[in-house]
Design a protein around this nucleic acid. Sequence first.
DNA 1: TCAGTGATTAGG
DNA 2: CTAATCACTGAG
Length: 171
Amino acid sequence: MKEGIRLSKDFYTRDVLEVAPDLPGKILVIKLEDGSFKRFKITEVEAYRGSEDRACHAFRGRTPRTEIMYHEGGRLYIYFIYGMYWMLNIVTGDNNIPQAVLIRGVDGYPGPGKLTKSLGIDKSFYGEDLVLSEKIWVEDTGSVHTVKVGPRIGIDYAGEYWKSRPWRYYL
DNA sequence: TCAGTGATTAGG
DNA sequence: CTAATCACTGAG
């Protein structure tokens, strides 16, 4: 896997529908418990876009859990679901525009619950700044990737319109 | 198809 | 305080 350059703030402060399709193929770098760093190619993501998107957690407004989504892009939004899994999301867009990209899979670990369990990602990563953090960030290797699109998964409750938005992006 | 499992949230 | 909900996974 090629070395890369850490993505800067400008990458994340764009609209989520611009950021999300740019993430598959990028490299997630994370510091492990033993102090070493490991690199994983991002393979699948989904966009959650603002207070209008019925599938977005910010649809019901600002709560302690969703607070970070209202921050300027580049932070991590982490939440716990189904009593077992931590979900890893990257906040995007401008201040007060609640958006995030769910990381659904990385190379070797397809599935949002499996990747966080394997990489040891939990609530301690909530709010982490991908631009400045010393334990997690994303790199661009310069490689060009063909990204496929499809509807988001697991959001039946959001209604047909939001369920059918082609906001899942994968290699 | 379906249960496990517990943080988070709205509501009393 | 209570009860409902849930951006998932693995077993059958």
